[in-house]
């Protein structure tokens, strides 16, 4: 049964992507739900009369109380979500999915590569790592967007870049207004800055489908093992509980066996990417 939740804050991240902060209405459930999930998990958001769809959680369990989502206006449900105001209600089920295996990443260097909306699930893990900074080795975050206007969490990353204990590199494909102060070019061009111990690194990528191949090639060039390369995938999902079948790939249900998979899974299970 979906839980009612209130939109407590919303603002636009780009022209078509909006940030939502929501709070579960049932006080008893707020803390258990918002403090125990894994970065990389997702929730089913539903609006009665419209439908239900999966969305990555972009907040971190290390900052409980609220769930955060970034949502691109792309279909029927998301268009309706964009009509909602602060204090309006939505309904949530979840969290679902395997999430990132945070325990396996402890003690390792972390390398994040985000493209476009792929920043949404990666932000959850990044903030988690920054909140638990001592648990991890070096921390590199590479983020690419089409233009400065399309970069999610732009201001947040400008702020985070100030932190001395992690390396954040931002790039844009094009800079039509000509005032972008950082790198230009595709996200793989940022790999020149990366200095990690490849055998003891967990690499994470999320972005548009075309991006995976090129980024994974860079990971392999660095010498990171298949089992330490993680990617989080998108599929159509209706139930989130490994039942409706619409996210099936091979014999895996992306909603319960994923959405986080290793490069080995991707090589082994045909059709994942």
């Amino acid at each position: 049964m979906p839980d009612r939740a209130r939109i407590v804050r919303k603002y636009d991240l780009t022209e078509d992507v909006r940030f939502f902060q929501v709070r579960i209405c049932d006080q008893e459930k707020v803390f258990p739900l918002t403090s125990t999930y894994s970065p990389g998990q997702f929730m089913m958001i539903s609006l009665p009369y419209v439908g239900e769809a999966p969305f990555s959680i972009t907040s971190t369990p290390s900052r409980p109380g609220l769930f955060e989502f970034c949502i691109r206006k792309v279909g029927r449900l998301t268009s309706k979500l964009f009509e909602l105001e602060e204090n309006d209600f939505i309904w949530l089920r979840g969290p679902f999915g395997n999430g990132f295996p945070v325990e396996k990443m402890i003690g390792k260097d972390l390398l994040f590569v985000a493209g476009g909306l792929g920043a949404a699930p990666l932000r959850s893990l990044l903030l988690y790592a920054l909140d638990n900074r001592d648990l991890f080795g070096k921390l590199f975050y590479l983020h690419g967007a089409r233009t400065p206007r399309d970069m999610l969490f732009r201001e947040e990353f400008f702020q985070l870049k100030q932190r001395k204990d992690f390396q954040c590199y931002l790039t844009v494909d094009e800079d039509p207004e000509g005032n972008w102060p950082f790198d230009k070019g595709v996200v793989t061009s940022l790999f020149k800055y990366v200095k990690v111990n490849p055998k003891n690194t967990a690499a994470v990528v999320c972005g548009p489908p075309v991006m995976y191949k090129y980024v994974v090639e860079e990971f392999i060039k660095l010498g990171i093992p298949d089992a330490n390369i993680y990617m989080t995938l998108e599929r159509k999902m209706k139930c989130g509980m490994g039942k409706c079948g619409q996210c099936v790939v091979g014999h895996k249900y992306v909603c319960v066996d994923g959405p986080v998979f290793t490069l080995w899974d991707v090589k082994n299970i045909k059709g994942l990417i």
Binding site: Y49, G51, G245
Partner: peptide, 10 residues
Amino acid sequence: CTCFDLEDEY
């Protein structure tokens, strides 16, 4: 075969 779909109807 177990797959199903969900749809809201008014």
